[in-house]
Design a protein around this nucleic acid. Structure first.
Length: 226
DNA sequence: GCATTAACCACAG
DNA sequence: CTGTGGTTAATGC
């Protein structure tokens, strides 16, 4: 079996596409590839952070220990960087990352990453762009959390999975009810109730973890207005 | 007051 | 881990 290297990798980020061949070889030398299974912790809050983490493939939840319970900050789908803020922003991780599906991850040595930032402005620009997009996403999520009521946040969550993660109106939720609660700021009981309500109202069809959106218009309406 | 929203608790599959 | 029912506290007519 031929080895996948950074040079022939087809899951490269926009940023690493800006790298020259010489830099790619350098990346290759400082990159370790690891496969994680569903439920595996990729990195943990409070642990020392020492690598830049790039998710090639898979779904990952970013979560943080709140005062009384776990809060999922967001769900990300590879290809994407993880943990740039946690690596550059502090010595220890400010949040944890856990695989929700089988996930391929690259651990990139900080020294190489810093070198690219210092010498390749196109690379640096792409990284900044990604960080900015992330921050904008967090702003939206923050406002939703504070101003929408429960069913609005759940509806938004369902739309997020349909539009951003699966690009399908039918999908299998990769989260437990508890986790969906942690993501949307609801108790697990409220999540159960709201999902069955949406099911009864024929907005979605619910079978265990499989959700099919039957009435996208109404779901979007609920997400938007409340 | 009364209604609504949503969390907490308990208990049953 | 889920779903449901009762209870309770906060908020808004």
């Amino acid at each position: 079996m031929s080895q996948i290297t950074c040079i022939n990798c087809n899951n490269r980020s926009t940023a690493t596409s800006q790298l020259k061949d010489k830099e790619l070889s350098m990346l290759e030398a400082s990159c370790s590839n690891v496969k994680f299974m569903k439920g595996d912790v990729i990195f943990k809050q409070y642990a020392l952070s020492s690598n830049i983490i790039y998710v090639k493939k898979g779904l990952v939840k970013i979560h943080i220990n709140g005062p009384d319970r776990d809060q999922i900050l967001k769900i990300v789908k590879g290809p994407t960087y993880l943990g740039i803020p946690t690596t550059f922003g502090d010595k220890v991780n400010r949040y944890s990352a856990t695989a929700l599906t089988e996930t391929d991850v690259c651990f990139v040595e900080l020294s190489a990453f810093k070198e690219f930032l210092a010498t390749n402005s196109n690379f640096a620009f792409e990284i900044i762009k990604e960080l900015c997009k992330n921050e904008l996403g967090h702003f939206d999520h923050c406002v939703s959390q504070v101003q929408k009521q429960s069913q609005g946040r759940i509806a938004e969550g369902i739309c997020f999975f349909a539009d951003k993660i699966f690009n399908e109106s039918i999908f299998e939720l990769p989260l437990s009810r508890q986790e969906l609660g942690d993501l949307t700021g609801n108790s697990r009981e409220s999540v159960s109730r709201i999902l069955t309500n949406l099911n009864n109202d024929k907005v979605i069809s619910l079978k265990g973890k499989t959700i099919e959106i039957l009435n996208m218009e109404r779901l979007k309406g609920i997400s938007k207005n409340g």
